[in-house]
Design a protein around this nucleic acid. Structure first.
Ligand code: FES
Ligand code: FES
Lengths: 148, 148
DNA sequence: ATAATTTAAGACAAAAAAGTCTTAAATATA
DNA sequence: TATATTTAAGACTTTTTTGTCTTAAATTAT
């Protein structure tokens, strides 16, 4: 009933864009991100732990600790985040759920789906956090609380 | 962790294509479909009930009963099945999960996502069961058991 | 009428996803 | 050193999805 991505992944993407948009060169606390985006602090902590383990973010404990992007926002593509949180299958699997996609056994939707999947991968693989963070502030605001 | 569609929806699509491909003008039993596609009979029954309620299939009880397409396969588009099983939001919602998509409050990914969503809707809205059922038999076979 | 077949409906169970909380570890500062 | 802050890790709960089973209703055939 949900959209294309799981809640986990939606939260991870929103948080990453938000952090990139802050353009802060210190760590930002997970609590403040959770509040700004109106996401459960506990749950967001788990999501960001995953992104940290995937080398997309850095974390630091203690006062003034928090998380930060592990690289310049211009070097983090959306597909990294999606793969870390949803797994490769979400970007490579068969649209009808068959165990293998393509090769010997393409399903009846395979050709049609490949065109779309290619576009999705192209978009996610070429869009960086920087580009999203640099958008019209009006759009940016709409990942934060006031929009909900 | 799954693909773009839920299991329910994958099963519904596979079953619909399978039934269309049989080109049978009688009812086909759910049990035989479930066996051919290696899907739980009980679960498939639920899925097909939903499609029946959505006027995409007809069902009939008793000996020689079963289900059939409610219209010619050339008049059933994939988006109907997806909407019946996943809800409209899956084809219209915000990719970042915001409560509204577009209008006043587009999210940072909105423009990029709209292009893709448009393609998905275009594909699902213009592809009929007939077209999929008429494909290369090799492809068709790959929704059935032997492929799993 | 009776029995057999098949879907409908709803209860039930198991698994996965989503969300919450507690305790531990790391760090900074007083 | 002691205290406060903040993430890490893992247990735990709730909700949703997925899957199973039982009983009822409809239909056919004997
Ligand atoms: S085999 Fe189904 S999408 Fe490739
Ligand atoms: S507002 Fe997010 S995709 Fe439209």
């Amino acid at each position: 009933m949900s959209g294309i991505f799981s809640n986990k992944c939606e939260y991870g993407l929103r948080a990453a864009v938000y952090i990139a948009a802050l353009k802060k060169d210190q760590f930002v606390s997970i609590r403040s991100v959770a509040e700004a985006l109106d996401i459960s602090f506990y749950f967001l902590t788990k999501v960001l732990q995953t992104l940290t383990q995937a080398n997309i973010m850095n974390s630091y404990r203690g006062p003034n600790g928090g998380i930060s992007l592990s690289r310049p926002a211009s070097e983090i593509h959306l597909n990294e985040i999606v793969i870390a949180l949803e797994g490769r299958r979400s970007l490579e699997g068969c649209v009808l759920g068959l165990p293998e996609c393509g090769g010997e056994n393409p399903c009846p939707l395979h050709n049609r789906w490949m065109d779309i999947r290619e576009e999705i991968n192209q978009m996610l693989g070429s869009t960086t956090l920087q580009e999203l963070a640099d958008q019209n502030p009006v759009k940016l605001e709409n990942i934060i609380k006031s929009a909900g």
